[in-house]
Amino acid sequence: MSQIQLENVDFRYPNGFLANENLNLVIKKGERVAIVGQNGAGKTTAVKLMNGLNKPTNGNVFVNDMNTKDYTTAQVAKYVGYVFQNPDDQIFNQSVYDEIAYMPRYYKKSEKEVKKNVDEAADILNIRTFLKSNPFEIPYTIRKFVTIAAILAIEPQYLILDEPTAGQDLVGTKILSNLLDVLQQKKVGVITITHDMEFVTENFLRVIAMANKHIIADGTAKEIFSRDEIIEESRIKRTDMGIIGAELGLGKDILNPAELVEVLSSRIDVQ
């Protein structure tokens, strides 16, 4: 079955710290899911369980029909790619091309396939002009795109993005939104950890809120951002338009400017 499943999962670090407790979750191939919550909620630990970087202390994690306990991280990562928040934690090659080509070569793809995958990934992220550059000599925002391209090049079934919009400008964020649309067309599942609530509400229908090691809510963006108790416990904030809508008494489920205008227009029409 093509899905990621966490089944009664706990994760405890070697020092004894319990980071995740009783996580139950299913993410199907092709879904776009945002995971939100304050720092320390357990988000990063949870997604690292999905690609085998972490192995559950209790319970089971399945990627398709693979129990991650029975496979190496490299074997699981072929299906679930993970892009680190800080690109400097991931990059180690001396050219952008070699960085993107590294994993396809690791999985024994032909050089023709490698070049095809590198070019396609670079085009999606608009970084083809940097392929001959040293990745440590290009802007931070472009380095982030290099690390995403490096994972895209192995053609994973699921892609995990850790704070992808951090440090990005409007152009970079638009490229990321386009990436999500391309991946949806390819039926690649995307799991994103982010504190950027505007990016969440504009690009994700399904939102998972975490707090204190647990999943506390799993629903649509409107369901999550309209409930005060979820906002308070997960310590996230509404979007700017959501805050304005709530303060004007227009409702707590407004997510973006278009929805705010629509509600205001309907009020004017009624009057």
Rank of each mutant, 00 (worst) to 15 (best):
T57C: 01
I4C: 08
D269I: 13
N86T: 06
E21V: 08
S177R: 11
E259P: 00
K112V: 15
L183R: 12
A101K: 00
D169I: 14
N24I: 15
I160R: 11
A41K: 00
E137Q: 12
K174E: 14
A221N: 13
E233V: 07
Y79V: 09
L49V: 10
S110Y: 12
R105M: 11
L255Q: 00
I142E: 01
Y158G: 06
K187A: 12
V36H: 07
A77N: 12
K28P: 04
Q90D: 06
I100H: 04
N67V: 03
P257K: 11
H214M: 12
P87Y: 00
S2H: 09
I91Q: 06
H195T: 11
V96H: 06
G52D: 08
V171M: 06
E21C: 08
N86V: 03
T68C: 07
N67G: 05
A246H: 10
I230S: 02
I160F: 11
F17V: 13
S226N: 04
E155N: 14
K237H: 13
F92R: 02
Y97W: 15
S110G: 11
I142D: 01
D169V: 10
D123K: 15
Y107Q: 01
L255D: 00
V182P: 02
Q157P: 07
N67M: 08
V261D: 11
I148R: 03
V114S: 01
T68E: 09
N22A: 11
G37E: 03
R206Q: 14
T57V: 01
P87V: 00
P139Q: 03
K43S: 10
T73N: 12
G242V: 02
D269Q: 15
T220A: 09
K112Q: 14
M1K: 15
N126A: 10
K112F: 14
A209W: 03
P257D: 04
E113Y: 08
A19M: 07
V26M: 10
F204K: 03
T45D: 05
L248F: 12
I148C: 01
F17S: 13
A101F: 04
A46S: 13
A221V: 08
D98P: 05
N134P: 09
A34M: 10
Y106D: 04
Y107E: 00
M66A: 10
D181T: 15
P164M: 07
Y13A: 10
P135A: 04
E21F: 14
P257E: 07
V61H: 03
N126F: 09
K116G: 06
T57K: 00
N54F: 12
L6Q: 06
L180G: 01
Y13S: 12
K69M: 15
V207W: 06
I127Q: 00
K115N: 09
D169H: 13
A19F: 01
A74Y: 13
I231Q: 04
I244N: 05
I27R: 09
E21T: 08
I91M: 13
G245Y: 03
D228R: 15
N20A: 12
V83S: 07
G189S: 10
I151F: 02
Y82I: 04
N64T: 10
I236Q: 00
H195M: 12
I216H: 11
R105A: 14
E137D: 10
N178V: 05
I127N: 01
D196F: 01
